[in-house]
Simulated assay, not measured.
Amino acid sequence: MSLARRGTLTVAVLSLLTLAAGQAAAAPVHAPAPAATAAQGAKVTRIEQQVAQDLARSLSDTGWRSQVRAGVSTGAVELSPLAGRATAPAARQLAATVAEADRRIAGAKGLGLDLGPLLRVQLADPSMRAALDAGAEPLVAAAVGDDHAATVTAYDRAGRTHTLDARTLPAQPVYLVDLDSARTTAAGLKLIGDELARKGLNTPAAQTSPAGQTSTAAAGWWATKVDSIEVSDDEEPWFKGGAEMFALVTGFGQDGKARVDSVTMPYLDYDGTVYYPNQILVNWSNYKYNLADVVLMEDDGDTNYLALAQAITAVLLTIADQGTYIPLVNAVLAALPSSWWTDDPDYVDSWYTLAKNSSGRLNGAAANGWMSVSPYFVQQF
């Protein structure tokens, strides 16, 4: 799925941390840059490409080749367990290689090493199934993160490279090696939440009883619910692997500190499709004011969540509640690793000044999506 608007990540993070006009901009604040470098994110792509080449070479074993063909018959399949169940020496060797690649990817994304299998293999397009079943030799490629790539490198079982047109679906079957982005995104968003909490940000909101006393058992809280949502993109290249969508909601917490809440949106699979999730987007009990901003993003694979968490935390710690929104452009620019200017994570769209009483259709600022929302009271019993 291609929903990204690459090269505009700065806009996404700025909207994440921008506070509404009404006061002159504060003096520049330089946040410490996170440890991750531009090369860090590219590690995932390089690892995927090496695994694609190794998988292609292993397909010289006819029995293992048949097992892979059967494995992808229903969609994406975890590569390490698939190879581990095989008896062919080439497959068993590949299983060990892929398991190590899974661990290296988890490290490159700033996540723990116990996430389990991350790399998957699938047909690039279901229409290739007939040729594959008829005996056509498949090529293997890594799912490319760059939506605007002109070519894609694929490998055959002899290790030779083939340059494929990125905009034309190949006639020859192609296996794509990509990430289980649902698993990595869930772990990454948890890491961001943990990092914010560790720094004293995103603390749970205390509820106030009618008598003015704080209580953890209030009658309920108001929320903004997503009734329907659609994202649009004119280009959807065949070489894209699975992408995971998530939203970042920001505002001032009840304690007066800036906060960010993440919301996973795994159902947003296809462009040009209207979804009706009835999903809670904003829990207003977490926020001091009745305004928040929403940024919709996707992880195409190379996102380093530890670096993202460190960058967001560094900037949030510089923001004080002054009753109005103040842009902290220099602080954000100082915090961003250089790799984020081009690739990861991908900015999709943003919604500014979402209000507690907002309802109806809201178009995104980047004109790449819309959502219909409504106020919703969550009753506590």
Results as ranks from 00 to 15, higher is better:
K43F: 00
A33R: 05
A247I: 01
S2G: 13
L123D: 04
R6N: 13
A141T: 11
D233V: 01
I105Q: 10
G84E: 13
S127K: 05
F239G: 10
P81D: 09
S15R: 05
T214Q: 15
D146A: 10
A99H: 06
P81K: 05
P266W: 07
L333C: 01
A134L: 06
G369R: 07
D165V: 01
L9W: 14
L17E: 01
A197V: 06
V294E: 08
G242K: 12
A108D: 13
W221R: 11
A154V: 05
A334C: 05
S66D: 15
G112E: 15
L191S: 10
T184C: 09
A314V: 00
D299P: 09
A149N: 03
Y289N: 02
Y267V: 08
L316T: 00
S358M: 02
T97E: 07
S372N: 11
H162F: 05
E137M: 08
D227F: 03
A206T: 01
Q40V: 12
R157L: 03
D349V: 07
T151D: 12
A218L: 10
A86I: 08
T8Y: 15
D156Q: 02
E137V: 12
Y325N: 10
A26S: 14
T273Y: 12
T74R: 04
I229Y: 12
S80C: 02
P34Y: 08
R103T: 14
I319V: 09
G188I: 08
E236S: 15
D344A: 15
Q207G: 09
H162D: 05
A4K: 15
G301C: 11
F377K: 03
A124M: 12
G7V: 11
S232G: 05
G301L: 08
K190Y: 07
S215R: 06
L316P: 00
A130Y: 00
N202T: 03
T303E: 14
H30C: 03
V121L: 08
F252L: 13
T342H: 12
D234Y: 06
G84T: 04
E236Q: 15
D293L: 00
E244R: 10
I280V: 08
W221M: 06
G241P: 06
N330H: 02
L354I: 10
T353I: 05
T168N: 02
E137D: 14
D346K: 11
A24W: 06
L328I: 07
A42H: 12
Q23D: 09
A95N: 14
T18Y: 01
V174H: 10
V373D: 09
A21N: 11
T18S: 07
V260R: 12
W222E: 15
P204F: 10
L328D: 05
D255P: 04
S359R: 08
E78P: 01
Q93V: 08
L113P: 04
A38M: 02
D147A: 12
L118V: 13
G272M: 00
L94M: 10
R160T: 00
A141N: 09
P337I: 09
A218K: 06
G242S: 14
V249F: 08
D61Q: 12
E100K: 15
D261E: 14
P117R: 07
V51E: 10
L79W: 05
G84F: 02
A108I: 10
Q172E: 11
A365F: 06
Y155N: 02
L118H: 11
Y276F: 08
Y270F: 04
A367P: 00
L306K: 14
S372K: 09
P277Y: 00
P327E: 07
L79C: 04
Y155H: 11
A25I: 06
V249R: 04
T163Q: 13
Q310I: 01
A142P: 03
